[in-house]
């Protein structure tokens, strides 16, 4: 399979000497769910900004569908990549939910008579249909993030980057966003999701994990592969998902748990057999 997104030898520095990213290379397959994890200051948010061309002056190449990111291809690439940022307030552009979803459509020059239908459909998908007339100050953080996701999806991106989209939410909001992402993945299996997170449990359920530590890519691979490097992860000040830690413990006592078991519920069922 051809990678939908391919980053090679990406180096970037804010001030000229201490680089925030040091020669990062990884590929993302179409339709996969990739988790990029790392501690604060590991360069994960810098990576997200670079992928969307929000900062200039990086070395190395970023290719989306084989097109190299440059000043010329910027708008072309941005039309295929959507991003949801961390702070729900700072990405709410419209004065109501409907206006905010419409913002991207207006930029895309979607004709006026098609807009209402698109807005209603995506608000419906995000469970925000009843709130179309609501102003952002009357919405919870989770609801605002759902609107942000609806706004991104309405533009039919191929890749959605979630830049710590749940970090500022309460547990209920986090759960809502996780469910919504699972649902949109189900509806459109070709959608590629790049989730920048420090939620280890989320990474455990992804297709591929990329681990960053102070600007270096230290590990990448399936969750099972990555989380077997306990020492490296500890050095990067990252933990290990509970299920995988349990698998390691069981393996060290001679019980091999099949790799198909990923969630806590599956583990429970397996152990109770």
């Amino acid at each position: 399979m051809n990678p939908i997104l391919s980053v090679s030898n990406l180096t970037f520095s804010y001030d000229g000497d201490s680089p925030a990213l040091k020669g990062i290379s990884f590929d993302v397959e179409e339709g996969s769910y990739v988790a990029i994890i790392g501690h604060n200051g590991s360069g994960k948010s810098t990576l997200a900004k670079l992928l969307l061309g929000l900062m200039n002056g990086f070395k190395g190449t970023i290719r989306v569908f084989g097109t190299e990111l440059s000043r010329k291809t910027l708008y072309q690439i941005r039309s295929r990549v959507g991003i949801v940022f961390q702070n729900p307030d700072n990405q709410f552009v419209g004065s109501t939910v409907a206006d905010d979803i419409a913002f991207g459509l207006e930029n895309r020059k979607v004709p006026h008579d098609q807009m209402q239908g698109i807005i209603e459909k995506f608000a419906d998908d995000a469970g925000m249909r009843a709130f179309l007339d609501h102003a952002p100050e009357n919405l919870s953080g989770g609801q605002k993030q759902r609107v942000a996701i609806a706004g991104v999806l309405a533009m039919h991106p191929d890749i959605v980057i979630l830049d710590e989209a749940t970090a500022m939410l309460d547990p209920k909001g986090k759960r809502e966003i996780r469910d919504l992402i699972a649902k949109m993945k189900q509806e459109n299996p070709k959608l590629t999701i790049l989730s920048i997170t420090h939620d280890i449990e989320e990474a455990a359920n992804s297709d591929k994990v990329v681990v960053l530590d102070s600007g270096n890519l230290i590990l990448q691979g399936t969750p099972d592969e990555v989380f077997s490097h306990v020492d490296a992860l500890n050095a990067a000040r990252l933990g290990i998902p509970f299920v995988i830690a349990l698998k390691h413990e069981l393996a060290s006592r001679g019980i091999e748990v099949p790799s198909s078991i990923k969630t806590l519920e599956q583990m429970e069922d397996y152990l109770c057999q």
């Binding site: 929000l54 991003i83 913002f103 930029n107 706004g151």
Partner: peptide
């Protein structure tokens, strides 16, 4: 966020 959602102040936009 606005830039990522395709806002270009010089470009023509449609209206909701």
């Amino acid at each position: 966020a606005m830039e990522c959602r395709g806002y270009d102040p010089r470009a023509k936009r449609t209206r909701y």
